[in-house]
Write a protein that binds this DNA or RNA. Structure first.
Lengths: 188, 188
DNA sequence: CGGAAATGCGGACAACCGTACACATAATGT
DNA sequence: ACATTATGTGTACGGTTGTCCGCATTTCCG
């Protein structure tokens, strides 16, 4: 009767996080195939659920990308918050933030790419704008907590540009360069 | 026999800028419908050429988006260069650059949105990466001419983030905020 | 002038996609 | 215990798309 390796009861009306799993699968699909590859069928395959299941939880494809965007934003903000919380009070912010960027473009490159793919989708979908703007604001807010409002917003903007430009370069941007830019943004 | 208002001979193997016209039409389509709306058929309609014509000049759709991205980058760089050339030598760079941003998200909003849509496409298409990186470098180069290498690159990054975040907000970002951020990037 | 090459044109086809629907099954409330 | 509801599943359909192909027309060049 059981199906996966784990003891998840799996089928029937009990699979409480199925909706979430589908949304996460959508992010994975975007990370691997890009926006063009985001289809009900591929997400269903990635999440290991039948096609009908994705159309049940997300009536339209727009609903699905909206959920994916929100979840990606949530993840991204959580990551930055974790970084901020783990920061010793006397840390060199420029250095640490540069390290954060390097990590986002290095090990976490796939995630970052997926995030910006979804983010860019909001350009032409009014229903997604709200989530995208909230994303920006949340990042700025985390950064503001360590500095001041203007600096927080500026760091958010700079982070956006840095990640975007760095993630689509094949050869890595030197860490010192990033640190220098961040430092200048910090020296108000 | 003639067709448009101008004296272009129009049909037959003579329509020298048809390829360009199709590429420009592609940008227009993206500006209006977003990436999802970029299809051979819609571009053909926008360019007022038959479907077969787009598939002749751009065998695959990837070729078409590549051409569109390159043309968009070319346009964007040309615009910044024009701005730079028209700048009086004693101008306040922060103020002028802020005005440039405001214009890009104001009157030119549609163009800017199309540009970032195409730019983001490069995230998952290796063939487009080169063009996107060249775009970034060209912008940084124009800005460097007025400052120094590091500042030029930083302004390029900041511009990218500013435009991106501002263009998907419904209510405009205050010009003073933009100017303040640019000014801080300039004060090395 | 005449053939070769380039360009333009319309139609066709196979593949894929979003969505809807009908039915099955487990949970829930009374 | 049973009816109602929420969730899961398979399948089908209409529409759109990318791409290809055959043929027409114009230019080019010797």
């Amino acid at each position: 009767m059981d199906r996966g390796g784990t003891a998840r009861r799996g089928r029937g009306p009990t699979d409480p996080d199925r909706r979430d799993r589908i949304a996460r699968a959508a992010i994975t699909v975007v990370a691997r195939q890009g926006i063009a590859g985001l289809t009900h069928r591929r997400v269903a395959a990635e999440a290991e659920v039948p096609l009908g299941s994705t159309t049940y939880h997300f009536a339209t494809l727009d609903d699905l990308v909206a959920a994916a965007l929100e979840k990606a934003a949530e993840r991204s903000v959580a990551e930055l918050r974790t970084w901020a919380d783990a920061l010793p009070p006397d840390a060199d912010l420029a250095e640490e933030l540069a390290a954060f960027v390097v990590r986002s473009v290095g090990e976490k490159r796939a995630d970052t790419m997926a995030e910006y793919n979804l983010y860019a989708l909001a350009l032409h979908r009014p229903q997604l704008r709200r989530a995208a703007v909230a994303w920006d604001d949340a990042l700025a807010d985390v950064l503001r907590a360590r500095t001041d409002p203007l600096t927080g917003r500026m760091l958010g903007v700079l982070l956006c540009g840095l990640l975007m430009q760095a993630v689509l370069r094949d050869d890595p941007v030197p860490c010192a360069e990033i640190e220098a830019q961040v430092r200048r943004a910090l020296e108000g």
